[in-house]
Nucleic acid binder design. Structure first.
Length: 126
DNA sequence: AAAGTGACCTCCT
DNA sequence: CAGGAGGCCACTT
């Protein structure tokens, strides 16, 4: 709650998202203790965690993927979500309201495996 | 160390 | 109801 850095909490939460469920950046930020830090969550994921985390399970409030300038991110994320059994609409929007994960189930960060310093490059491409 | 950027969200028009 | 603008926090260089 205070020992681990913000990114550690975000990584822990994202990594703890059950398969088949989804979570929005705002929810992750809220679970981390900073509801207004939704943007920061994206920064953490963009920075690379060094650990293979299901970042694809995190989408925006619109229930849609973003991509952040990368053209391979949206299709990859959608592809992964579909593999998880998620249902996408005609506009690429998924029923987030039905697949939203309960933040109450968010894990507690007491001994996060990822250290706040020196993190290896992330390899989660396909 | 400081400034710029960004995988967002919410409110207002 | 739909579109636009601003604000917030954290990471990168």
């Amino acid at each position: 709650m205070k020992d681990s850095s913000f990114r550690d909490r975000v990584l822990t939460i994202v990594c703890a998202i059950p398969e088949g469920l989804l979570l929005t950046y705002g929810d992750v930020a809220t679970a981390a203790g900073t509801p207004r830090a939704a943007r920061a969550v994206g920064a953490v994921l963009r920075a690379g965690t060094g650990v293979e985390i299901p970042w694809h399970r995190v989408v925006n409030a619109k229930g849609r993927v973003s991509g952040g300038g990368d053209v391979a991110r949206p299709p990859l994320q959608i592809k992964r979500l579909q593999a998880e059994g998620h249902r996408f609409g005609s506009d690429g929007v998924l029923n987030l309201a039905e697949r939203r994960w309960d933040l109450k189930e968010a894990p507690t960060w007491h001994d996060a495996p990822w250290e706040s310093k020196d993190q290896p490059p992330d390899d989660f491409s396909e």
